[in-house]
Write a protein that binds this DNA or RNA. Structure first.
Lengths: 357, 357
DNA sequence: CTGAAAGCGCTAACAC
DNA sequence: GTGTTAGCGCTTTCAG
């Protein structure tokens, strides 16, 4: 049965008019004490009450359209069936699927997520978390992790159930769900090497983020594995995951006369900037240079050429993070663990002509 | 001063250890009654208390790091300084900027937004709204409006402060903030006509949404204004704002031998599908057909050719919606009004060769 | 101007 | 099994 239409209820049979029915109303109508009604309504305590009485209470609650008041419940229990979800920037297409994954899992067990946007501002982050804690959220999922992040470290150390998603901290005892960046870089590099590339450039992302350092480290490892020279000139550190940073890096490479036939971009936005810079110099892609990105953002299949990229299962990242947090809420003392999800190469240029070196 | 680091407070001088200080703690420390402390802490009632005492209370609250408990406050006042924000699909890049606009404005006056994703599912919507109402949100912003939407109509009619953003309802007494679709279509059509187009097709969006019908109506109006024939063949109704729907529509047009040199797509996703279908038939763009979209989604400037589109100021839409709702919360009886924000053409093909008809 | 007392709606000891 | 009581932390009458 759908909940009663808001604002237009004819009113329960009790005296009051348009007020939402309270537990006391239900109890009164069912002829029991509010405490009994509470026990009957609560699945966890229902066994404490006579089966018949319980049924009657449920029945009355249903006809009255009773909905427990979560505020009152929170005040009493200091729990809220909700968690905080801290996102650096919702307009980055990376994050909405993570949010969806988290919400879907939480929703399945009656939990909600408070979503907050920090805009990458630590002050906003601390303020938001403080505000959420005062609302008795039971735990947090952070998508804002930095390698060194004292605030989250303290929060977790203080016993607040905390899970990281997409990005990890350097201290590793906080559970996290991330993509297997090392594995992703490995398949991307193998792809490039298989195409014949020997001079591959890496546009590395911010080195205060686990994604940035892990992909860079894996890039170096891959160079070694494939017997390629690890030339400092073929590495560009980008200070932000932004198109402009990618464009700047590639422009500098070209200006410096660095020779390369392929680019492993730390993510798709850097790859986009790379496209821009190459086009700006009249270089064709993949004719002159092959580019591989990271994330498989929406619409990168519409670029010309379509961007080959390493797909990260963001929805699943979120779903797993939610599971991890729920598990932690149920069994706070279980040892923590982190989850690495496999990445896959989305090859959109497999029909491209072999590289001319 | 930053809030005390979570979980590691040395503890206030009162007996308790890691507990958050309560109003009673502050009152005790300041040597006043909790009620007085409450009055002093609350800007609205501060004038009721002696200036010195008030200062002392504020001082103590500060050193103790006191943060009022919003749950207790909500239980007492049935207010929450928060509103519900109902989004059909957060992964649609349209909506995150709206969310940001709303949050920025609300945050400025101490309000929060609960964001819920309905996934376009009415059942999820009613459930989410019910849940938010029970959390005492003070009002709602809906981005899920449909022309006929009994649920929202009842909610608003029942007195719940409600604002629509991006999409309106047919009943117009619910305040809304939307883009000026008619104006947007007019400039888009003028653009196409100025390029020399006479046979222009419209891919119309869902006709249960205000955006869909308004753009279609404006398209017809523009045909009339420019003295162009309003041929039913040059109109395609798409049942969803989706790439696939746009592709299907254009494919059908081509199959049916409909002659056209330009397409006004109801939004960018339909335009994307249009690109696909044209490419699939070996037609070049803008060589053979010009396309104009709607929204200026991220990265449509990266398509080839870059998509000319009507930009909707989504962030501002959100910001205005928040203002409207806040105004409504403050003065519930003021007459409602709706806001139309101007749209602008983002011409990315102005250098394109003139059309060969 | 301040204190006392009540109560928002619910749950958890503790009786019976 | 069920009722009684108390209280989560706050605001708001009502006295004084």
């Amino acid at each position: 049965m759908p909940p009663p239409p808001p604002g237009t209820e004819p009113g329960p049979r009790t005296a009051s008019v348009a007020r939402r029915p309270t537990l006391k109303d239900v109890a009164g109508e069912a002829g029991v004490h509010p405490a009994t009604a509470s026990r009957a309504l609560n699945p966890g305590t229902r066994h404490l009450v006579n089966d018949e009485t319980a049924q009657r209470v449920l029945q009355v609650a249903d006809t009255l359209g009773y909905q427990p008041n979560p505020i009152a419940r929170s005040l009493k229990t200091a729990r809220s069936a909700s968690i905080g979800l801290v996102i650096p920037d919702l307009t980055n297409p990376l994050f909405p699927p993570i949010v969806r994954g988290i919400e879907d899992v939480l929703g399945g067990v009656g939990y909600n997520a408070w979503i907050v946007n920090t805009d990458n501002d630590p002050a906003r982050e601390t303020a938001a978390v403080e505000s959420l804690r005062s609302r008795s959220v039971e735990g947090f999922v952070f998508a804002t992790g930095r390698l060194h992040h004292p605030f989250i470290e303290r929060l977790a150390a203080g016993g607040t159930p905390t899970v990281l998603v997409n990005r990890r901290l350097a201290v590793s005892d906080i559970p996290s769900v991330t993509g297997d960046d090392a594995g992703g870089v490995a398949i991307a590099m193998r792809h490039l090497v298989d195409l014949g590339h020997r001079r591959i450039v890496h546009l590395a992302g911010p080195q205060d983020l686990s994604t940035g350092v892990n992909r860079l480290r894996a890039f170096r490892q891959a160079l070694e594995d494939h017997g390629l020279e690890d030339s400092p000139a073929r590495l560009k550190l980008c200070s932000a995951w932004a198109e402009s940073a990618g464009a700047k890096a590639v422009t500098e490479l070209l200006d410096d006369g660095v020779e390369f036939t392929a680019v492993l971009a730390g993510n798709d936005l850097l790859a986009l900037g790379c496209y821009d810079a190459l086009a700006g110099r009249g270089l064709s892609c993949p004719g002159d240079v092959s580019v591989v990105g990271f994330n498989d953002m929406p619409f990168v299949d519409k670029l010309s050429p379509p961007l080959t990229t390493v797909r990260i299962p963001h929805y699943e990242l979120g779903a797993e993070a939610a599971h991890l947090l729920l598990e932690r809420l149920r069994a706070p003392d279980r040892t923590t663990r982190s989850i690495l999800l496999p990445l896959t190469l989305v090859d959109r240029q497999s029909t491209a002509p072999p590289r001319l070196l």
